[in-house]
Nucleic acid binder design. Structure first.
Length: 491
RNA sequence: CGGGGUAUAGCACAGUCCGGUUAGUGUACCUGCUUUGGGAGCAGGGGGUCGCAGGUUCGAAUCCUGCUACCCCGACCA
């Protein structure tokens, strides 16, 4: 074996680290905490972007771009926001280098100090609301529905590829509305878009819900989240949508004249998903043989491997493969024909499994004689021999089936790892025994949430949107509660 | 940012304790032949500022000091 993966059961986090690197998704760079996203990984991200971008536009949003740098003074305008991000900001203080007079290399030119330091954006609310102030005067200017695709920097102390890096790629939507109701509606709309994307494209079931006060975005009145369950029983926050109320409008003095001619502060939302989704995708489906990619996000959905003994056989096979490729492409299926002579079939089989290609099609002399191909599906690791006749339709259906099977497997895993706890003892037992989501009553206080976190490391992942009214007692304090919330140990 | 660990060829490691020929093994790479339905075999070959910077010494991968990066555990976080 050329590339050995640590097994998932032996060491889950090592398995993840190995997989990301060995499947060629990303690697660590020369810059601490910052990753290089490699072409294969970036191709998946581009597929995610393309679909999300389409969904944003379908819901009336437009793309724009705001600066990487934010004047320091902007940051202090919204108190909770500063509080939340101050500890992880990169700061630009100078704008010039010069040759070191004492010898080698370059130094920062002390005479080139900026009058006002610039913050490398950890998120763009401040620069955007400073800008929106100029865009908004009357109710006729609203709503503003902008999104931007950008990089942001949060100076993390402990990083992991995709899951937490000092610089990451994301999209951030920032909207401005005339009424609270409309802003709230937007907040919900976007969390639904994220859930739709996660489930139908990533094949990853998610729970939609409100964040508790502790977990809320700095500066938001309400944060909605989608929470996914990874295969080690830990939760991963995969996307958030914030109702910002009038906090930023007040901080940046953004008012509009309503239909009665009175000035009012604008209502705001913001929402984002990041390259963290790549980590979610890896951890939701993959196995000890490597990545398992849902067909809708795979850089190529089908790989074709020829098996041959000489050039003559290869050209006969290639002729047949060209036909197949043409038919598959006509159906919009992306396919790679790997006729390279540099590697042997067995090597290619293992390599494409590691990279999660949903469907592998092998064709050799035996198949040419019989008019067949060998189809191997990545998700189930099963093989079958099928007729070339009608292969395109067959593959198309199979890809759809793989997409659904992957989803169902993740869904079943989540179902098995979602438990109800009614007592504190039970809660701790479940957490220790199998982890996963635990549905339990909570008295609604931060103190209780904090205590539970200290004692078990579990936090409230969300208060589900579809939580049923149910009288009960808080598992920790015993105080009355009227609905269950979702606990888990989180990434 | 606190505690622990690691750093030697593209990758995985040995050698470091106890300083002493030309730094070694597997794999990957290059050439040739034979191979090709699950990570091929044989033969030959190339590749190293031993993480970086200082110091000790006749002599440093090895001892000392500082720095950097990565991994694990904590605090913090998408």
């Amino acid at each position: 074996m050329a590339k050995e993966l640590t097994s998932k059961s032996e060491n889950y986090s090592q398995w993840y680290n190995d997989l990301v690197v060995k499947a060629d998704l990303a690697e660590n760079s020369a810059v601490r905490g910052c990753m290089v996203i490699k072409p294969y990984g970036y191709a998946i991200w581009e597929k995610m972007q393309a679909e999300l971008d389409r969904m944003f536009k379908e819901t009336g949003h437009v793309n724009a771009y705001f600066p990487l740098f934010i004047p320091k003074s902007f940051f202090s305008k919204e108190a909770a926001h500063v509080e939340g991000f101050a500890k992880e900001c990169a700061v630009v203080t100078h704008y010039r280098l010069k040759n070191d007079p004492d010898g080698k290399g370059v130094i920062v030119d002390p005479s080139a100090k900026l009058e006002e330091e610039l913050i490398v954006r950890p998120t763009s609310e401040t620069i955007i609301w400073n800008t929106y102030k100029n865009w908004i005067q009357s109710w006729r200017d609203l709503p503003i529905l902008c999104n931007q695709w950008a990089n942001v920097v949060r100076w993390e102390m402990r990083t992991r590829l995709f899951l937490r890096t000092a610089e990451f790629l994301w999209q951030e939507g920032h909207t401005a509305h005339a009424t609270k109701e409309e802003a709230l509606e937007e907040t919900f709309k976007m969390v639904n878009v994220y859930a739709d994307f996660a489930e139908n494209f990533m094949a990853m079931p998610v729970i939609k819900g409100h964040k508790s006060e502790n977990e809320r975005f700095a500066g938001a009145l309400d944060t909605l989240t989608i929470e996914a369950l990874m295969q080690d029983g830990k939760a991963l926050q995969s996307g958030t949508s914030h109702f910002l109320g009038q906090n930023f409008a007040k901080a940046f003095d953004v008012q509009f004249a309503n239909k009665e001619g009175k000035l009012e502060h604008v209502w705001a939302t913001s929402w984002g998903v990041s390259t963290r989704l790549m980590g979610a995708l890896v951890m939701a489906h993959s196995d000890d043989n490597g990545l398992v990619l849902p067909p809708k996000l795979a850089p190529f959905q089908v790989v074709i491997v020829p098996i041959y003994k000489n050039d003559e056989q290869l050209s006969a096979i290639s002729a047949k493969v060209d036909e197949i490729v043409g038919k598959l492409k006509a159906r919009g299926i992306s396919v790679k024909y790997d006729s390279s002579d540099a590697k042997k079939p067995g090597w290619k089989f293992a390599e494409y499994e590691l990279k999660g290609v949903p469907l592998r099609l092998a064709i050799g002399p035996r198949d040419l004689e019989n008019g067949t191909v060998e189809l191997a599906r990545r998700d189930l690791l099963t093989k079958e021999v099928v007729n070339i006749e009608g292969i395109d339709e067959y593959v198309e259906n199979l890809l759809e089936n793989i997409q659904q099977t992957i989803y169902k497997k993740a869904f079943d895993y989540r179902t098995e790892h979602t438990s109800k706890a009614d007592t504190w003892e039970e809660f701790k037992e479940i957490l220790a025994a199998k982890g996963g989501f635990i549905s339990a009553h909570w008295d609604g206080t931060s103190e209780t949430e904090q205590k539970i976190k200290e004692e078990t490391k579990a936090t409230i992942r969300c208060i589900p949107l579809d939580a049923e009214e149910e009288e009960g007692k808080c598992i920790y304090s015993g105080k009355p509660s009227n609905k269950r919330v979702i606990y888990a140990i989180a990434y």
